[in-house]
Design a protein around this nucleic acid. Sequence first.
DNA 1: ACCTGCCGCGCC
DNA 2: AAAGGGCGCGGCAGGT
Length: 585
Amino acid sequence: MRIAVGADEGDRVALVDLDDPGASAEVIGLAELPSRAAALEAAGPRWVWSDTRHWYPILLRAGLRVERCHDLLLCGAILEGSADAREPRESERERPGWLAAAPTLSGSTIGTASSPHAGGPTALFDLGGGLGRGAAADADPSAVPLDGIVAEYRRQERLTAGSARPRAMRLLLAAESAGALIGAEMRAAGLPWSRDVHERILEAELGPRPKPGWKPERMAVLATEVRSALGQTSVNLDSQAELLRALRNAGIQVDSTAKWELHEHDHPAIAPLLAYKRSARLLSANGWAWLDEWIADGRFRPDYVPGGTATGRWATSGGGALQLPKIVRAAVVADPGWSLVVADAAQLEPRVLAALAHDEAMATAARGRDIYRGIVDDGVVETRDQAKVAILGAMYGATTGDSGRLVPRLARAYPRAMALVDRAAATGERGAQVTTNLGRSSPFPPASWHAAQARASEPDATPSDERRARSVARDWGRFTRNFVVQGSAAEWALCWMAALRTRLARVPPTTPAAERSGPVFSAAPHLVYYLHDEIIVHTPNEYAEAVAVAVRESAEGAGRLLFGDFPVDFPLDLAIVDSYAMADG
DNA sequence: ACCTGCCGCGCC
DNA sequence: AAAGGGCGCGGCAGGT
């Protein structure tokens, strides 16, 4: 059963069963939606709605979780971009304006970031530009009436059925939609967070909390040390420009204030400066102000944006949830009587690459062990570090340095895997799309990219124009090279999580609903964190072992679902702990 | 008083 | 040690 949900007059909501041809819409008040949805959920429907980030929190606030949905915004964005699902012209005209609001493929900073003088004002990414009809009027996905929802769902169904690999596309859309449910649930549940532990970390690193507008004591001491070592009493360490000038005046020949460059110099100012920068970073990114803004009732509730990046990885908006520094992870602490099951997929991307390319030699090097050790054992390189640098170089497109020199050795040992990423890079250099395992395609290069190529083919093009065009083309090739691996790995992770979520939902709550005041998250294991290839489940102690089994079996299931019989494995590093900090290694 | 670009750095 | 992919965020600098 599939039930479409749309907006109706005033504060009302309209529902219809898409699998009952004779059904007419049912219109109810928004306040009645959770109870009506709870009744319908018993039949295990797929909820078809515009935007999970709008609709699902309404249900979650009332304590209702749903099993399945189809998120039209997210799925529309995938179908829009996919080379596997090219739209016929007439379908393109039916594409509603509100779909443009999807978090979508505009993201890449390539080409603008690496071309400071080219580009100019970037009107490159005004999404949906020519397509949408009067944007403002119908841009709000939460206001789309039921007939609009049904029409768009039917259009997406047609595109999926007509796509190059309908089974893969269906799986991708289901996984993406499950991700949207998980994102909303994780926000509702929150990541358990100890303010006390966090404050102790801040005090240990920075000293006592300063008065508003003052620097922490420890930073002030470090700053004085740096200034005297530089022999310049008034330099402001927070200003890159001033600091760079001061370093050079002191005879330290650097081109930037980046820490990797500072590391290369030997001078009494360097050590305190690096310590100062470390402290400044902690203070501004995860200091007391962050605690005040983001931690309430012992929970961190970031705003996840599933599908928020071009490759399908998630993003977050606010709180920096995907960049939690290792040093503050000790503040992630399970509730009393509960545990954290922390699991990450070891070396996910190289394994995904081996499977994508059907490279049995590489899969064998990975199987049942550390893939980097396997590469050393294959005699490809001498050390584990070399293997790691070589693999990363192959996936990211390194051409110089140690990494670039080692890549050719990999190519001899694992020709199929290398051919796959090389082909992806070549495709990107031509300005064409590449596509992940399940059918998410890379965006086309931005206008500035085409402008650079066009300039180089003018009759009066200079050698510098040509160099520029080649460089821009290669930049895009590195993006597409990595896209197929990163994007396919994101699909694996989504399938892993979706399977795990389904299994966790079957665990009976420790206290039955009738005796519970709070949401189900207070009584059963649930996902609380997701970071590209890593998850955390918060669980009552008595379920921790069972959760660990479910996490492992879900990973195995994801591998089979995506890569069938191909002999690649996806081992997990898994730990049952009280604190996230205890899960390292 | 804003806005935008860029840097630097945290994570994968 | 070095520079290759994806992000978000805070802060500064320079613009309007």
